[in-house]
Design a protein around this nucleic acid. Sequence first.
DNA 1: CGCCGAGTTGAACTGAATCAAGAAACGTGG
DNA 2: CCACGTTTCTTGATTCAGTTCAACTCGGCG
Lengths: 197, 197
Amino acid sequence: MNRFSFTEYLTSNAGLDASLVSSLVSSCQTKQYKSGDYLLREGERSLHSFFIEKGLAKMYGIDSRGKEHILQFAPEGWFVADRESAYFQKPATCFIQAIEDTSVLLIDEAHILEMARANPGFLEFNNKLLHNHIRHLNNRIYQLLSATAEERYLSFIKTYPDILLRVPQIMVASYLGITPESLSRVRKDLAGKHAAR
Amino acid sequence: MNRFSFTEYLTSNAGLDASLVSSLVSSCQTKQYKSGDYLLREGERSLHSFFIEKGLAKMYGIDSRGKEHILQFAPEGWFVADRESAYFQKPATCFIQAIEDTSVLLIDEAHILEMARANPGFLEFNNKLLHNHIRHLNNRIYQLLSATAEERYLSFIKTYPDILLRVPQIMVASYLGITPESLSRVRKDLAGKHAAR
DNA sequence: CGCCGAGTTGAACTGAATCAAGAAACGTGG
DNA sequence: CCACGTTTCTTGATTCAGTTCAACTCGGCG
């Protein structure tokens, strides 16, 4: 998988001038994780978000029955954060874990605010990111409310064809809110339908 | 139900000085809706969000089978918006409808950006709102992934005791992602458990 | 008064979960 | 590079939470 330079990302997406970007980037720490390492554990306090430059991470919670539920996948070029800790400075409510060897930028939320204050272009960019994220989450909720397991899987394939190829089925199932067994059957049915033409 | 002046809300919550607030508020239009009126319909284009001063609204989508799914309730003091239209200037993907007689402030998203640009305090306030909203949505997703109908209902009671009393059960069911019949049975079971002590 | 939507209850049904067991894929160390 | 143990995936049998369909009650409102 190719690498996403944060610098490149900002200059091309946020429309910021190079000096500003380099000042933001230089103030961030880079960190490497091996597949399986935790970027954040439930209960920890940490004041930064993560920008994935390379690799893949998952954010998930563990319920009272010990089951894992994936809230988000984060491939290169994406942000992940437990807002509870990064923004509201409380103990984290979920885990963030690398599922490939991953290199990330640690981004201080306070610093984001500073940047937004100082630079209108960055403010607008940051706002667009947040609104976009909200839109995604609303979509996901709507799916969970209205669609069957099969429909959700089809929608996942369409929206994240790249991620589908990089994570085990068991994690896709967790993301969709169904068991691995059910997902296996859904796929079997779909294969059948496809063949029967 | 009491009224939430937007002016009061901003001065007390955002920590902004009065002149600034009044300039924002004066640039917004107020609008009244009767119960049942639409603030926004699917497919419409509209560039503003709503702040509910009084009353209650719901945001919902209608699926391919004609079923309604409630994404959000919005009582006084809350914002509602279809980001697709308000922020990304595309046709709305859902309906927003008053379920009580409601008075709202129409807030231009472009104007929010301007204000944030001009005033650091407002920027911070706006950011906090967005992050908080994201946190709520993540919680909701986690619930839908991990909890049973009964657990979700109990959590709803706890989180929105006020709304519970103001909306018909059929809408609570829609919000929880279950049928009205199921909700009725969940309530019956809970009443039984409660009595059996 | 009559009607219509909301809520309840019952019976039958179903999509998905659970439990169990075997097969394939994977990575890790020797 | 192979052998090993560990996940992952699949398939079958059974169970169960929640849906669907249908009938009936109730309260409010025109």
